[in-house]
Amino acid sequence: MFSELNSRARGLLVALAMLLLVLPFIASNYVLSVAVLILYFAYTGQAWNVMMGFCGQLSLGHALYVGLGGYTAAALFVHFGIGPWAGVLASVIVCMTAGALVGFLAFRFSIGGVYFALLTIAFAEFTRIGFDHWQWLGASGGFFLPVSQREVSDLVNLRGSPTMFYYIILALASAALLFSTWLLRTRVGYYWLAIRENPEAAEALGINLFRYKMLAVLISAGMTSIAGVFFAFYYNNLFPEQVFNMGRSIEIILGPIIGGVGTLFGPIVGAALLTLLADGITELLGAFGIELSGIKQVFYGVCLLLVTMFLPNGVWPALSKRLGVISNRNDEE
């Protein structure tokens, strides 16, 4: 990817990387918490994008993987004293299994398009209901991780300062970007794009649709589960009504949609825009003493409306032209 970027783009990227690296030293805790949120959504957006943006399989239930991933690592930590680094492995396995189940049912029995999307919602929803009644994991009352003094950063147990969490999510988001970039340059990436563009033609070119769609779901679910582990250890609490909520799934997909589905930088740009604007408007309204519940949702809706009306391919394709960066072939669509 970086070899295809022109010097201007590379310069911008380096500047952005530098800024992100020094951010904890120059920004307040509030700014840092917003940055964590942006990077979190950049990461989950990148994970969702693998399935929808690359392979064309619409998931509206990615909260399933966030929730399962978070609960798995948290349960291992609280009940068995197993640290998050081993826990994340378990989470990835659990979520890939869940993804395999969804994928198998859908692709084996040719459930496509909107019906596939409905299936992903259904899995997230009944998992939410299941967790609501699972006493061992706190049921609907929530599951809590022990909160300790955040003075010394304990990387092994992921107990520490916001700065530590910031660097972790920065590393995750960067890794996801590099991973996606690499994926698109492999045979698998090309095959996914073929399936997204025209499954029938893809099949005629020797592509096993079941295998490659399954692979997209597994990778996407595995990546998302890591975000779940981060979520659990960052917030220290998990409520089924929250983590498995369909609203969470929608939050995950809004970033890449606003930024540009199928592009590499779209999820990042989308996450930044949405988080900054949503926080900005909450602040602004707060400053005027206006308190309206649901204003953020209304704002999301309006934003989505405007982008789909004026930038149907997302913000990033237009923005990259404006910035004069020659980007990856898939970012040019």
């Binding site: 340059r185 492999t186 045979r187 090309y190 095959y191 794009l193 073929a194 997204r196 563009e197 025209n198 029938e200 033609a201 893809a202 070119l205 020797g206 592509i207 072939r329 669509e333």
Partner: peptide, 23 residues
Amino acid sequence: KPFAGLSVLDNVVIGALRRHADV
């Protein structure tokens, strides 16, 4: 049935990848 959103070259590359795993 072209892969409409991809470049002409990438369309053909997808076919060629069947014999040559190396992009």
